[in-house]
Write a protein that binds this DNA or RNA. Structure first.
Lengths: 157, 157
DNA sequence: GAAAACATCTTAGTTGGTAAGATATTTAAT
DNA sequence: ATTAAATATCTTACCAACTAAGATGTTTTC
């Protein structure tokens, strides 16, 4: 009774392994970015949310980041002090503060990512259009799965 | 003067976007796993290091996780209390504690990931061997890049 | 066998989080 | 129009987990 693994099994095994490594590496990477910017991880995550989703109120930021409003007050204080974001009173509802990014000061971050993007471009050169399409499909689908699992885990307690 | 984007440009743009989303989603996922296990993120990260790299001394764990030895003492205390790891005196050097995983109690985590792995298998069905090889290559290469960038960021300060 | 090196733990102080409630503003009800 | 309820953010008191520095116990070196 010999255990035989097909080439496909081996591919799948290697990919599973590599995805796990990729997760861990990603987490360390984001930690390193935050440190580089002189921010803690939470503050950096909130800054990214603001970059990706655009200006929003303090309450929305709390909801998106899964932090309490009390914690968000501190986050915004620190981001404001670092010059990356600022509070603007909502003219229509003066209870609300809208938190927006300070474009001039965010340039450092954008330049950083531009360098990274350039190196990634070189990686893309390796692949044909068809291959890139497969990669995109896989990354999208596996991200969808991860989102699903995250929801399930949160529901379970 | 019209800006024209080729199909390839669009693919690359979409992939860049998707990779960024994937990072964020991964971070939330790991947060959810930790919560599910009743651990904080730091403790969970250390547990993963032990799973991936095998048993190691408290000092090695501190180095791998970029925590101080003081913090690691707390991490190990909590992992031990939760039953996921234990301290074993190094018989050759009694200054050292070797931290090892408690296999019986780690099963919960393995079962959790087995479920995830099964669902991922269905995703793999979509792809040919050749396509899986391309995906594996891309994930490996982009992980390597991320590792490189992480190092660079840490060196720079 | 004494000094230096080493591995881990302990302690004191700091940071960033939550929960609960204070303050200010808007919306809804009569 | 006034009052009550709802809403948005901030403040406060408290707690968990981190760092830095040094204490403790063990090994290595000379």
């Amino acid at each position: 009774m010999s255990t035989h693994f097909s080439k496909r099994d081996e591919l799948i095994h290697a990919l599973t392994d590599q995805m796990r490594i990729s997760s861990t590496v990603t987490i360390f990477f984001h930690q390193a970015i935050a440190e580089h910017l002189g921010l803690n991880q939470t503050d950096h995550k909130c800054l990214e949310l603001l970059q990706r989703k655009g200006a929003m109120t303090a309450g929305e930021l709390a909801e998106e980041s899964k932090l309490t409003t009390g914690a968000i007050t501190g986050v915004i204080d620190r981001l404001e002090k670092a010059g990356f974001a600022r509070r603007v009173k909502d003219p229509n509802d003066r209870r609300r503060w809208i938190i927006e990014i300070v474009q001039e000061n965010i340039k450092i971050i954008e330049d950083l990512f531009k360098t990274f993007a350039q190196q990634t471009m070189q990686l893309y050169d390796k692949y044909t259009d068809e291959e890139l399409a497969v990669i995109l499909d896989y990354v999208s689908e596996s991200t969808n799965l991860t989102v699903e699992w995250t929801k399930k885990l949160r529901e379970k307690r």
